[in-house]
Amino acid sequence: SHFELRVGTITLHFDNISEELAEELEKLAKNGVHADEIRRWWEEWLK
């Protein structure tokens, strides 16, 4: 499923992401983690 995450002024787009993972990314964003860090985390997870 597709997921969009708003982090400050940036909107990150994720394809084929589980609800659980989407929730984890939302938690990171709410805790003030920068969009670049979240994207890096996601790319690492995909490997």
Rank of each mutant, 00 (worst) to 15 (best):
S1A: 10
S1F: 14
H2G: 07
H2S: 12
H2I: 09
H2V: 07
H2Q: 08
F3I: 03
F3L: 11
F3Y: 08
E4P: 04
E4T: 02
E4D: 03
L5Q: 00
L5T: 00
R6M: 15
V7H: 01
V7L: 09
V7S: 01
V7C: 04
G8T: 06
G8D: 09
G8V: 02
T9L: 12
T9C: 08
T9D: 15
I10N: 03
I10G: 03
I10W: 02
I10M: 06
I10V: 13
I10D: 09
T11F: 04
T11N: 03
L12H: 01
L12I: 06
H13K: 10
H13R: 10
H13T: 12
H13S: 08
F14M: 02
F14V: 02
D15F: 15
D15I: 14
D15Q: 10
N16I: 05
N16R: 05
N16M: 06
I17M: 04
S18H: 05
S18C: 03
S18R: 04
S18V: 04
E19M: 14
E19S: 13
E20P: 04
E20G: 10
L21C: 08
L21D: 06
A22L: 08
A22K: 15
E23K: 15
E23N: 13
E23Y: 14
E23G: 11
E23P: 01
E23I: 13
E24V: 13
E24R: 12
E24K: 12
L25C: 02
L25S: 00
L25E: 00
L25K: 00
L25M: 04
L25I: 10
L25V: 05
E26G: 09
E26L: 14
E26S: 12
K27A: 12
K27C: 12
K27V: 09
K27H: 09
L28D: 00
A29H: 04
A29Q: 04
A29D: 02
K30R: 13
N31F: 10
N31P: 06
N31L: 13
G32M: 07
G32E: 06
G32H: 06
G32C: 02
G32K: 04
V33T: 13
V33K: 13
H34L: 10
H34N: 13
H34K: 12
H34D: 14
H34Q: 14
H34Y: 06
H34T: 15
H34E: 14
H34S: 15
A35G: 04
A35D: 02
A35T: 06
A35K: 02
A35C: 02
D36A: 10
D36L: 08
E37H: 07
E37S: 06
E37D: 13
R39G: 05
R39W: 15
R39N: 11
R40P: 02
R40I: 10
R40K: 12
R40F: 07
W41E: 05
W41Q: 10
W42E: 01
W42M: 09
W42P: 00
W42F: 15
W42Q: 02
E43Q: 12
E43L: 11
E44K: 06
E44W: 07
E44R: 06
L46G: 09
L46H: 10
L46D: 07
L46I: 10
L46F: 08
L46S: 11
K47S: 14
K47G: 12
K47M: 13
K47N: 14
